Simulated scan of single mutants.
Amino acid sequence: MSQERSAEFKGNPITLVGPVLKVGDAAPDFSLNKNLLETSSLKDFAGKVKLISVVPSIDTGVCDAQTRRFNEEASKLGDNVAILTISVDLPFAQARWCAAAGVDRVYLLSDYKDNSFGKAYGVLIKEFQLDMRAIFVLDANDKIAYIEVLNEMGEHPNYEAAISAVKSLL
């Protein structure tokens, strides 16, 4: 049975589906699309600290800014950190956006097929079939070290806290 809890979109209630993960939990594995044929999972980033930036759609203002910000931070964090941006946008749209934005240090992965990431991480928005804006920081052993699931979809995450959490694991 899936769990449900409330959040907001522009002051209106929405429902998040999936478990409430906690710091210290083992991160659920995932299978996300890099493109239509290739997938990526947690094991593809084994041994690295992972910052997982979840956005509803890459083609919106806050999602665009969030992904650009973490792309800028990526070069400062070094090779032991993998930054993943996850949305339900089709891989084609993600690739087009990356090319137009010059984003090249962040892995964009798509949860479009079955929303398995959203369901496993408790961020699937039932009403829209999008993933709620959230940040998960995982240590090199895939334990969750930091979580921020925003209550309002249109707000920015706490970038400084997320980056600080990553740095504390290096």
Rank of each mutant, 00 (worst) to 15 (best):
E127Y: 10
M1K: 13
C63G: 09
L150I: 11
K43N: 14
D139H: 09
S40Q: 05
A99E: 15
D142N: 13
A101T: 01
A162D: 01
E38D: 15
P157I: 06
A101I: 00
L77P: 02
F136W: 08
K34Y: 05
N141R: 11
N151Q: 14
T39I: 08
V62M: 03
M132P: 09
S41L: 06
K143T: 09
A101S: 14
Y107H: 14
V81M: 03
K48F: 03
D64M: 03
V149K: 11
G11I: 12
V54A: 13
D59K: 03
F9N: 05
D79S: 13
L16V: 11
S168C: 09
F136G: 05
N80G: 15
A120L: 07
S75W: 01
N71M: 00
V49A: 13
V62D: 07
I52A: 02
L77Y: 04
S41V: 01
A161I: 00
G11P: 10
R133W: 06
N35R: 07
F128I: 04
K48I: 04
K167N: 03
G47F: 02
A82V: 04
Q129L: 11
A27M: 09
E155F: 10
S164M: 05
A120M: 09
D29Y: 13
V106E: 00
S31E: 12
A7V: 08
D114F: 11
K167M: 05
L37M: 15
S110H: 05
L42Q: 12
G18A: 07
V103H: 00
A134N: 06
Q66V: 12
F45K: 10
A134P: 10
Q129N: 13
K119T: 06
A27I: 06
A26K: 15
G61D: 03
P28K: 07
I144H: 04
L16Q: 06
P56M: 03
G47S: 09
Q94L: 13
P19T: 11
V106D: 00
S87Q: 03
E160C: 05
K34N: 09
L21R: 10
L16F: 07
K34I: 15
A140N: 14
L130I: 14
G118S: 08
A145M: 06
S6R: 12
A161S: 13
V54N: 11
A46T: 02
A95N: 11
D44V: 02
H156R: 03
E38M: 10
F30G: 02
P13V: 07
Y159D: 10
D64H: 10
T60A: 09
Y159R: 01
A27R: 07
S41I: 01
I14R: 04
V23Y: 07
T15P: 05
V23P: 08
P91T: 12
L21I: 12
D89Q: 02
D59M: 05
